[in-house]
Design a protein around this nucleic acid. Structure first.
Lengths: 347, 347
DNA sequence: CTGAAAGCGCTTACAG
DNA sequence: CTGAAAGCGCTTACAG
């Protein structure tokens, strides 16, 4: 049961002024004499008054909140280090802007669309972050109808009427492939992320392009979905290939870590027999043995920039696309020179 | 720039009734004839009207939101699988209850207190989740002053005026120690979580109690803080002990995974030379080699139950403590029998 | 069963 | 510089 809190009327009475004046004083607007302003602020302090958000929302037609809807298996979110840093980045801006973050975690598409609709149609948020962009993203049509300011986190695969804050993740994959090729690897494989997601697909395209550029066979690709389980299964499939790849580029860290487990369990030494790389720079990867090579994208900065863009969009009605520094490759112990050719298993 | 949306007045006009009646009809209250109700609902549907939250909040004095403030290094949150599942559990209840989750991620205590104060004093939330309970938790005094419904997620170390939803994590540690002892281990070590946190301390107490009960030396304890980095450092310290422990009970999975890396890098085989166990059941642990033994606490169910309790508290002014099923130990490949005694390294 | 009115706690022209 | 009033979009007694 909420305790009655002081309202603007209490402050006005205490300071001996009208409530309109209290409002002016507290929002630093002109038209209040310094002396009166001081008295009002003192009363507000004394009464521990804070303007009610709901009341401000109603008169200002602003929600003072931004929304993030996550449709992913909690297991995948849990394994992924992206979101905690991304969210921390968002919040680094919101606190100062007097805004809050509304987070929705949903299970399926129906719940997802319901969540977006509620947030927007009930005016709970001033804008929405769109993450985990999908290849034919059905949220685009929905959000266009809802007419709510939106920022795209990532490069959309089709035109969309909102600003995008992007990081070129292809650069990280390209760097990984080049590094492996420079170490003599030729049979380099890729374990993809969810192919329905733009960043799953774009990392795969980057892999194929980098391999092709180097004149290498780009067809050693196993489809997975970013989950550790799928990374393990894909790795097992790769181990059955003949000839076996000598290096694997995984589309994220959890799959690479699971892959490392499968390789080690199968008696395949990393990096002596097979080199591996991940993506997204989870903290734990640095502490594995061997330490996992990975690609970092600074999700904290990404979140902060996306929030900045969304606030701009809400305040000014427009905001520019932002291209953040490309992902960069961090080599660690999990990659090494190509194993010296031994007797092929067949032929 | 928000597009003008239909208001209750538009619906009333369209249906040819007063707006009061629209409100009654849409909230399923008595006093509206079936025929009129039907007409009103049809108009609302047609106009795609949704009641404005801010307006409802103001007249109902309800925020329709619950708040969660996280003060942790994003790296630690990212490595920890607890929060994504916990949050997903919360949301599983909120969606149906028409509530949203307000999430704040903050860096230090000042920002944390400011966040709680804003959420409560500005009436942004109807209640707060208190997680990561600390040993002398200074939030208790703050929240008492703020007089906002609160639910404790975990057992507080000192009396507090709010219901607590608890999971006995001691049971998991006890089970791990017993299992290791049954496998012949005597020199069992513990790498603690953050000792300022209740669950860091209680796991340590559980370790000491379980060892003492078994008549084993409970002093092989290294203080860490739940981060992978601290788990790695603690493991290195344990490796320098003489005699070396043959088993290590870590207070969470990220530290155990980092410890596994350190052990492997040092040529110590797991579980042949040293057995290890984690806590919290991250997905990736199951895919390591050897697979990480761990303790699960069902954070999804925990979140759902905490949300249920908080809603009850808000609606009825009171709610009972809830004790969820205790944590359970999941043995996997990372534990094995005590190594057969060889020549001690010294003496 | 239905309508007109007051109120939730703010902000903001509009007068003085 | 200050006050009185209207309005944001709902809900809810109070009359009829």
């Amino acid at each position: 049961m909420p305790t009655p809190r002081p309202t603007i009327v209490d402050v006005a009475r205490h300071a001996g002024v009208s409530k309109g004046l209290v409002s002016l004083a507290l929002n630093d607007r002109p038209g209040v004499s310094p002396e009166t302003r001081r008295r009002i602020l003192a009363s507000a302090d004394l009464l521990e008054w804070r303007p009610s958000r709901p009341a401000r929302q109603l008169s200002l037609k602003t929600a003072f909140a931004l929304g993030l809807v996550l449709r992913r298996d909690p297991h995948v979110i849990a394994a992924d280090s992206f979101f905690p840093h991304f969210i921390a980045g968002i919040e680094s801006l919101l606190a100062n802007a007097g805004r809050s973050l509304l987070l929705s975690v949903v299970g399926d598409e129906a719940a997802e669309h319901a969540a977006y609709t509620r947030l927007a149609a009930e005016r709970r948020v001033d804008g929405l972050f769109l993450t985990d962009l999908r290849v034919h993203d059905r949220r685009f049509e929905l959000l266009r109808r809802l007419a709510v300011p939106t920022v795209l986190v990532g490069q959309p695969s089709e035109p969309a009427p909102w600003p995008a804050v992007t990081v070129d993740d292809r650069a990280g994959i390209t760097a990984a492939v080049r590094r492996l090729a420079a170490a003599g690897h030729v049979r380099i494989a890729h374990v993809t992320g969810d192919p329905d997601m733009v960043h799953g697909l774009s990392r795969r395209h980057a892999f194929v392009a980098a391999m092709t550029d180097l004149g290498l066979d780009p067809t050693l690709v196993e489809i997975a979905d970013f989950s550790a389980a799928s990374g393990a299964a894909a790795t097992e499939a790769l181990l059955c290939r003949d000839p076996r790849p000598t290096a694997v580029v995984y589309a994220n860290d959890p799959m690479a870590i699971a892959g490392l487990g499968v390789l080690t369990a199968g008696g395949v030494r990393v990096p002596d027999d097979v080199s591996i790389t991940g993506f997204d720079g989870s903290e734990v990867g640095a502490y594995l043995h061997p330490a996992l090579s990975t690609v970092t994208t600074n999700p904290y900065g990404w979140g902060a920039r996306a929030a900045r863009t969304l606030l701009d969009l809400h305040e000014h009605g427009a905001a520019d696309d932002v291209a953040l520094p490309p992902a960069s490759f961090i080599p660690r112990g999990s990659i090494g020179p190509v194993p010296s050719p031994t007797v092929p298993s067949k032929e």
